[in-house]
Design a protein around this nucleic acid. Structure first.
Lengths: 243, 243
DNA sequence: ACGTGCAAATTGATATACTAGTATGACAAA
DNA sequence: TTTGTCATACTAGTATATCAATTTGCACGT
């Protein structure tokens, strides 16, 4: 377990507080920047589950001191993306397959709530917004742009949360579904999957537009239930990635 | 905004790692200890919303360096109990009344899920366990022991989550209901409230014992809906406590 | 093969110093 | 009086060096 990963020697550049127009921007701390970079790297599996992360080495690679690196790692440990063993080492967490079913249940519970509420209160503009998201999604799907497609997928769910008046629920869902996302990254990109997802989103939107909370809920449950990855196949293809 | 608060000069003592029986206990880091103390102080309102918390001063009061204090404050900021303004100051967060309705919705959503599942799968032992919790609760209520009563109240909900097979949901609910708890602390202890809560718990348990998921859900929703504090009265009595 | 013990490695914590924003109040200008 | 500027002090963010506590692995000896 002495694997390491190169970060490409990316140097962090402190953002100065003054924008060109004199607007006072919120300062981006070094610790926050490192957190985001590591977060993205872990979720995208650029940093593989199980590999070692050392405060000292990361600090050198980013060209900063241990302090902000340490703070970033502590935050990552809280959301379950790294595991810190005192006086021993810090490692990218293995994907806890046993926790995924519960994460799915939580997500279903919360998104059922948002979609039902959204179906009750959605305005014409809300529906138009969701429709435009789906349109972009369909375009990306036809071009096979998985990354952009994924962004719009998230935007769709986030928009529903916002429409319902519960934007904080999406924030919660994002952290809950982290490990699910990591597992999903390992599944081969099934052709046609993007089209299927788009159709499921359309079904959800149809129900919202009809202000049919029950149908919207059912469509959302079907959508979220279809995303569960095949656990056993993953274990076979990627030994050592799971806890 | 130069208010401060005395911590009574409580000195932290490092726990050694070896228990009397040789079992290797998980080491309690200084940062974690400080986090817990500040967490409890803020939720119990011993630390009032809005007052200043300074890394340096807290470090001196606890007799430690800035580092663990800083880590504790960062964690507290993540759960919304303190607000950090870079290069300016750190303050106990004011209670965000506007976020409370959403927190209630989230809690209802998650606990509806757990109680419905619990009603489906509860065994005789599970039901006995819940019954004993309620028994203890009734005893504490009759003696007016609010603090012990509150512990059993939490234990009841936590047990339901565990019975459902979703222990992580209770962990989530605990953080979501933090601000609700702070607001509730400000409400005067209504006589008979403890008795009412106990009866509501009994109704929930009855439905679970009967494996009636719908009734259990309804009882839980009624229970959680009855706890919403009177926002306007709070604003009047405690100016400066809310955001 | 199997413990034993020591050295290396790593996180936890301390102490100190410096930087960069931020709040504050005094003071000058209108 | 009001407004704008400036000096000052304060605070969080970061850097650096160092030590402590503990785990881990490997060499060593039995």
């Amino acid at each position: 377990m002495t694997n390491t990963v190169k970060h490409g020697g990316s140097a962090l550049r402190h953002q100065t507080s003054d924008g060109p127009n004199g607007i006072r921007l919120r300062r981006v701390t070094t610790a926050a920047a490192i957190y985001q970079q590591l977060h993205a790297a872990i979720v995208s599996l650029a940093l593989k589950p199980g590999i070692s992360l050392q405060e000292k080495r990361i600090a050198e690679e980013f060209g900063v001191s241990r302090t902000p690196v340490r703070e970033a790692l502590l935050r990552l440990a809280e959301v379950g993306l790294v595991e810190i063993f005192p006086q021993s080492g810090t490692f990218v967490s293995r994907i806890p397959l046993s926790a995924i079913p519960e994460a799915v249940v939580i997500r279903k519970s919360l998104e059922r709530t948002t979609v039902e509420r959204a179906a009750q209160v959605a305005t014409a503009e809300d529906i138009a917004q969701l429709d435009s998201i789906i349109a972009r999604q369909r375009a990306h799907a036809s071009l096979g742009e998985a990354s952009h497609f994924y962004e719009q997928d998230e935007a769709f769910h986030e928009a529903i949360s916002a429409i319902a008046g519960y934007p904080g629920i999406w924030t919660l869902v994002k952290t809950v579904k982290l490990q699910i996302d990591r597992a999903r990254r390992l599944t081969l990109p099934v052709s046609g999957r993007m089209t299927t997802v788009t159709e499921e989103h359309e079904a959800i939107l149809d129900a919202i537009a009809a202000h049919d909370a029950d149908r919207a809920s059912a469509a959302m449950m079907h959508h979220l239930g279809a995303v569960i990855p095949d656990v056993e196949a993953l274990r076979q293809h990627h030994p050592g990635y799971f806890a």
